[in-house]
């Protein structure tokens, strides 16, 4: 898992942008440790196409020493007649998705992500994990 030195800085903020035909909803979760199954703090899920600005983690409190996970869930409501076209739409997500943290060192810090797409449900998930030191 990647890490970022945020120290005692607050607030630490998240910004997500993506260019896609799908409906996107981003959620952010903060855990006490990497092994925690459930978070102690959640960000209000948002649509990155409408909420384009920075959003504070844990309501602006210090988040040093925690684990931050970001999940963006994509649903395609325009049905694709074949997987070829669907894969091209997913490639657009992979090529345009940017999640970044503001307030650490360096700042802003782009978070690496993994993408998994599901043709049968015409959905896609982009997940990121980051240790905030």
């Amino acid at each position: 898992m990647d890490h970022l030195n945020v120290g005692n800085n607050a607030p630490i903020k998240l910004r997500v942008s993506v260019q896609t035909e799908a409906m996107a909803v981003t959620s952010g979760f903060i855990y006490h440790s990497e092994t925690d199954e459930m978070p102690y703090s959640r960000m209000e899920p948002f649509d990155p196409s409408l909420k384009t600005g920075w959003k504070s983690l844990d309501k602006g409190n210090e988040v040093g020493g925690k684990v931050f996970r970001v999940i963006t869930f994509f649903t395609f409501f325009n049905s694709f007649p074949n997987e070829e076209t669907f894969n091209l739409a997913v490639a657009q997500i992979k090529g345009s998705y940017i999640a970044e943290i503001s307030g650490g060192n360096p700042s802003p810090f782009p978070i690496s992500f993994t993408t998994e797409a599901f043709f049968t449900t015409q959905t896609c998930m982009v997940e990121s994990g980051l240790k905030l030191l």
Binding site: S27, F29, M38, R69, T114, M125
Partner: peptide
């Protein structure tokens, strides 16, 4: 479902959809 770190992406997707 989405916050559960013990679930894989595929498991989360299946549970949500």
């Amino acid at each position: 479902i989405l916050a559960n770190s013990s679930l894989s992406s595929a498991e989360k997707n299946e549970k949500v959809t």
